[in-house]
Write a protein that binds this DNA or RNA. Structure first.
Lengths: 320, 320
DNA sequence: TTGTAGGCGTTATCAA
DNA sequence: TTGATAACGCCTACAA
């Protein structure tokens, strides 16, 4: 491996001169700087990350923790994060799995962005206690070294319920999400509260944000209540897709017999017929805001918790 | 930050003893080992990655390079890679973007898995020349330090053409992929060769593997040839989805007026009505094989180039 | 303007 | 069975 030592030898100078030259210090002549740079290029010199990190105590890399890479969901988000970080000259790596949590205390990364329900809150707090900067996208957490950039699930759920209310819904079915999930709980609680407010009776059918759980949920619903129209708020789009799938096998029609609204504005929902009405938000913006927040946190600038707001997207699956 | 020095002080031993103890060397008594371990735990000691890497010259991390994170395509693949690497006690990080290429010469990762057409072959070869181990999933490359684990596009394209041939196709439309892409070129060339072999006339409509390009392609096709059935081989599923989208706005029917086969067996293709006939392969297996190959390459074991084989999945979009 | 030397946290080689 | 010490590659006061 070629190091500054090799360059120094070839250039006939000391290693410190090389170091100064390469780091653009004003302590060397422009002439020698150019000469040394040329030699470095010629030798294909690349600084050793480990050695540099050992001194400078920072890697300029942010770790993004995801539970899994599935679904087209993450594409836009990661894109936003990447763009946001690039602005500050930071790189990003995407990690998943419990072993990579070590990257944080090992100081392989300068900070972490977490959207991974398998990452225990306790562990996150421990890392924060040890001084590591973390931004969480999927829970509420108050700590000096932690910031949240979270979805306005409350606003989204409110929007959905309002739609149903103004459409004269007599009874609502809520297909819920994972019990421990932050997003799913927020959406569920808000929906209940809003429905109570409108005095609309409702029933909760258990789901877990997966397509099959939506498929099963609609079966349960149809078993008991053939009263049309059947109004459903699926707490995410994937489960709504599951509903579509089952309905395709029945004489029911989405949009007339079944009125349904999802959450997340997934690609699939936009494609299926009729289009799935849903609650939307900018995943891209979410990423950018998260990136800015972690950088500011690292750099010691003042930062607040952030929210990403939602909007209603109409579609053929829900007609008044 | 707490290092082995702190532990040594607290335990009243030398740092080397601590190092031995923590690394499970047989050179220390089980007793002192336990005592030191206890102190390390108490102090929340985590080894410094940079320092360790500096000595040991390896990180036990493999970098996976992707052009983007979009599409549900990568989920299964990354899952396979992760599983494959875990078996050898390696971690994985997912990278994208030209700046992260530096991770390779910086020795932040022990090896790279590349499925990223934006990664220049020349650059890959340079890294390989410098002794870095690389496995490419999206091109053919012969080098001492490079192995390929590539899709059997030829087999897949052959399967598709055979289907059309046995269905009595009179004329084929091929919707092509990106000009520079390895997969798209392989698929296109093989299709042409096979079609020639069956003496089936064909026409190439340019596409770029994106949904909109499929949407545009079918418009072009319909403009010139209203002769039914219209037989189309879309070189990937996304473009086939584009075809579906446009057809939905016309009186034509997929499966009867338009017969179409895709490539990749995407999730979306399995969901849409009628189901998209396509060429399938195990993305999971692809990942596992790639993982095994890079590890063996790093460890200096003998490795061959590998192929991932394909199969035909029938669907309502193509009926004989 | 350039060189010398010490240190970053670990590992590993010798001695003790 | 342990301890002192020299690397690893780079950075940076401080000295020349």
């Amino acid at each position: 491996m070629v190091g500054i030592k090799d360059i120094a030898k070839k250039a006939g100078v000391s290693i410190s001169t090389v170091s100064y030259a390469l780091n653009g210090s004003p302590k060397v002549t422009e002439e020698t700087r150019a000469r040394i740079q040329a030699i470095a290029d010629e030798l294909n010199y690349v600084p050793n990350m480990a050695a540099r990190t050992l001194k400078s105590r920072q890697t300029k890399i942010i770790g993004v923790y995801l539970a899994d890479y599935g679904g087209s969901f993450y594409g836009e988000l990661l894109d936003g994060i990447k763009k946001g970080l690039a602005h500050y000259n930071y790189e990003m790596i995407v990690c998943s799995g419990v072993k990579s949590h070590l990257f944080i205390p090992e100081r392989m990364i300068d900070g972490a962005l977490i959207l991974d329900w398998t990452f225990k809150t306790k562990e996150i707090e421990q890392f924060a206690d040890r001084g590591h900067s973390i931004v969480v996208l999927d829970r509420q957490l108050t700590h000096e070294n932690i910031r949240q950039v979270i979805l306005d699930n409350k606003g989204g759920a409110t929007l959905a319920v309002e739609q149903f209310a103004s459409a004269g819904t007599k009874k609502m079915y809520l297909i819920s999400g994972p019990e421990k999930g932050y997003d799913s709980n927020q959406r569920l609680e808000t929906s209940r509260r809003e429905l109570d407010r409108f005095a609309i009776p409702y029933e909760i059918i258990e789901g877990d944000f997966t397509e099959p759980s939506g498929y099963k949920a609609i079966q349960t619903i149809l078993e008991e209540s053939p009263q049309k129209p059947i109004d459903i708020f699926a707490l995410n789009d994937e489960m709504a897709i599951g509903v579509y799938k089952y309905i395709k096998e029945t004489p029911y029609e989405i949009g007339t017999d079944i009125r349904i609204i999802g959450f997340d504005n997934s690609e699939l929902g936009a494609f299926i017929q009729p289009r799935l009405a849903t609650i939307s938000y900018s995943k891209h913006r979410w990423g950018i805001v998260a990136a800015e927040t972690i950088i500011k946190l690292i750099q010691g600038q003042a930062t607040e918790h952030e929210h990403i707001y939602t909007s209603f997207i109409s579609g053929g699956s829900f007609t008044k």
